[in-house]
């Protein structure tokens, strides 16, 4: 009898038991099984342990090991080590010799480091202070020697999503065109492409300060969920409490359109997928309501096409969307 009990594979009952969904009889069956013998008790305890721990993991952040490893690799990369061996200098010098004299001088005396993303894709960059930047296509950051130790200032061209490591002693600041964004530890997006008249900042976590460079007394404070803009034309700073999450869809791949005219849809999709999307004049005001989560461009286009009965043609690097109006 005891032997039999040991061989029952009670997993169906066990999950019901642990979930508090078992009937009285089922509960009794499990109880008598787990109390008969050391082995059964051990087995039951293992399940119970698993069950309890599994309920707690929902509150834990997901950790992306690839990103974290990149960050660590960056922090330990020899170029940033405090002591540089003679052999290393020779090695660096040899590499640099093949580059132009100018870039050699640049490296040696000002030590400006530049990180770029390719024209058609993102890069995730680990900074020496442990922060990370996701750079949208065709964007770059530059910073001077000593970043992470003596200062945390960098400049950005294009668009970047920043996840700043906490370090109350050394504020993290980003210069974009004529604006400065200053933070302690937070997550935010900055958009400042060459051909746009404004610097747009969107905060997803923590607090940042935005001001015209050199004018920190005129700062505005942005909290999570808020966004702000700096327009160089009138040197004006403005705060918005409504955040458009499509502003960071290039990083999150979460896109929400609610009665959004196609002309704006094209703009969001172009930025998200690094594509050049052109909307025909006759349909540019047609509204659409749809959500996309982590989808690739072809499937997004397919949905648009069938929803609004559109025509999509590819000409060179342009994607043209046309239709008969709405």
């Amino acid at each position: 009898m005891d032997n039999n009990k040991k061989h029952i594979a009670p997993i169906e009952l066990l999950s019901k038991y642990l979930a508090g969904e078992a009937s009285f009889d089922e509960k009794q069956a499990i109880d008598s099984w787990r109390l008969s013998g050391e082995e059964n008790k051990k087995e039951f305890d293992a399940f119970a342990k698993l069950w309890n721990a599994s309920g707690q993991v929902s509150t834990l952040s997901n950790i992306n090991l690839d990103t974290e490893w990149k960050r660590l690799e960056n922090a330990i990369s020899p170029a940033r080590a405090k002591t540089i061996s003679f052999a290393r200098i020779l090695q660096v010098a040899a590499t640099i010799a093949v580059l132009t004299v100018l870039s050699f001088i640049g490296y040696k005396f000002t030590s400006v480091k530049t990180e770029k993303s390719p024209a058609d894709g993102l890069s995730i960059i680990g900074l020496p202070d442990g922060s990370t930047v996701s750079l949208n296509a065709g964007s770059k950051i530059t910073y001077k020697k000593g970043f992470g130790t003596t200062h945390r200032n960098l400049s950005l061209k294009g668009e970047g999503y920043f996840e700043v490591a906490k370090n109350a002693g050394t504020p993290f600041s980003v210069s974009v065109n004529e604006a400065t964004v200053r933070v302690v530890g937070t997550k935010f997006n900055i958009k400042a492409y060459k051909n746009t008249p404004e610097v747009k900042v969107l905060v997803t976590d923590g607090t940042v300060k935005l001001y015209e460079s050199g004018q920190p007394q005129k700062q505005i404070i942005l909290n999570a969920g808020e966004s702000g803009s700096y327009r160089s034309a009138g040197k004006t700073i403005q705060k918005y409490t409504v955040t458009n999450l499509n502003d960071i869809s290039w990083k999150t791949r979460e896109i929400v359109f609610y009665n959004t005219p196609l002309i704006e849809v094209a703009e969001v999709l172009s930025n998200t997928y690094h594509a050049n999307i052109v909307i025909g004049e006759e349909i540019k005001d047609c509204p659409i309501t749809v959500n996309f989560t982590k989808q690739e461009l072809p499937s997004v286009l397919k949905v648009l096409k069938s929803t609004l009965n559109l025509k999509i043609t590819i000409e060179g690097n342009k994607i043209k969307i046309s239709g008969e109006g709405c």
Partner: peptide
């Protein structure tokens, strides 16, 4: 639901 729950528990148990 019961089946899926016990399946989940079984897989997790095996993984761990």
């Amino acid at each position: 639901v019961e089946t899926q729950m016990s399946k989940a528990l079984g897989i997790l148990k095996n993984e761990l």
